[in-house]
Design a protein around this nucleic acid. Structure first.
Lengths: 122, 122
DNA sequence: GCGGATGGTTACCGATCGGATACCAGTTAC
DNA sequence: GTAACTGGTATCCGATCGGTAACCATCCGC
């Protein structure tokens, strides 16, 4: 999931910040804990995850619930509004899959400056 | 068109850079000249417009045609790929219109830090 | 020959983005 | 007691974003 050559790096469609789109998709099937989210989002730092989640929370797309348990536990869940964004996200993914090759070709054929592919973090 | 309180400032959905989404919509009904594009995109600087257009060109979404005429004339036009993006853009706009109030409410109700509304340029 | 339009480019600047690193308080397992 | 896991926060850094201002060559109308 979300490998380093993920189409979402190439498509011109973005949802919120760098991670928000993937984050919302990770929450698609129910609430997830902070550290659970870090698994599929390979390499995301705690800081980036916190920031992205706070932003989504502020916009009413996810809720944060800190459980009163001996050992710390916080769960994030999509709101109705957040769930409603899954459709446009799916549409964007469909578009990207469909036009992936054209995008690659266009970049390759272009003489215009392209940013070098970012190095893959281990 | 694209007034300062445009929903596209608030929605978490973005196409390319700050102007790309609006730019593509401006090209929806046929080729446009550089200076024609600056009209609906109130206040865009030449630099920003050039950069955004170059980026769209590089990605194969628009074409640039410099006419061999006595007085300089350059036209930008959507490619088939660019036109295909109009659908997701329309979907994003529909989503934004539909959930505009919820987004505003969420921000208002939130105690989380929101960036102050940027000053409206004359 | 002077001003304005056209389609840009360049330099500069502050703000933001996003990664790396270090740290922290509470709990739990060894 | 000490290490690891939990869910973070604080600090630093370089890169990018996006705006302003200045400049530029060519052509046109007056």
């Amino acid at each position: 999931m979300f490998d380093p050559v993920c189409p979402s790096d190439l498509t011109p469609i973005r949802f919120g910040d760098k991670w928000a789109g993937m984050l919302l998709r990770c929450l698609e099937h129910g609430p997830r804990r902070f550290s659970e989210l870090r698994v599929p989002l390979r390499g995301i730092s705690a800081k980036a995850l916190t920031k992205s989640l706070r932003s989504l929370e502020r916009d009413g797309l996810v809720t944060r619930r800190a459980h009163a348990e001996p050992t710390r536990r916080v769960e994030y869940e999509l709101t109705a509004l957040g769930r409603s964004l899954l459709q446009p996200i799916a549409a964007a993914c469909a578009w990207a899959r469909e036009h992936w090759d054209e995008l690659l070709d266009a970049r390759e054929a272009s003489s215009l400056p392209t940013r070098p592919v970012q190095p893959v973090r281990g």
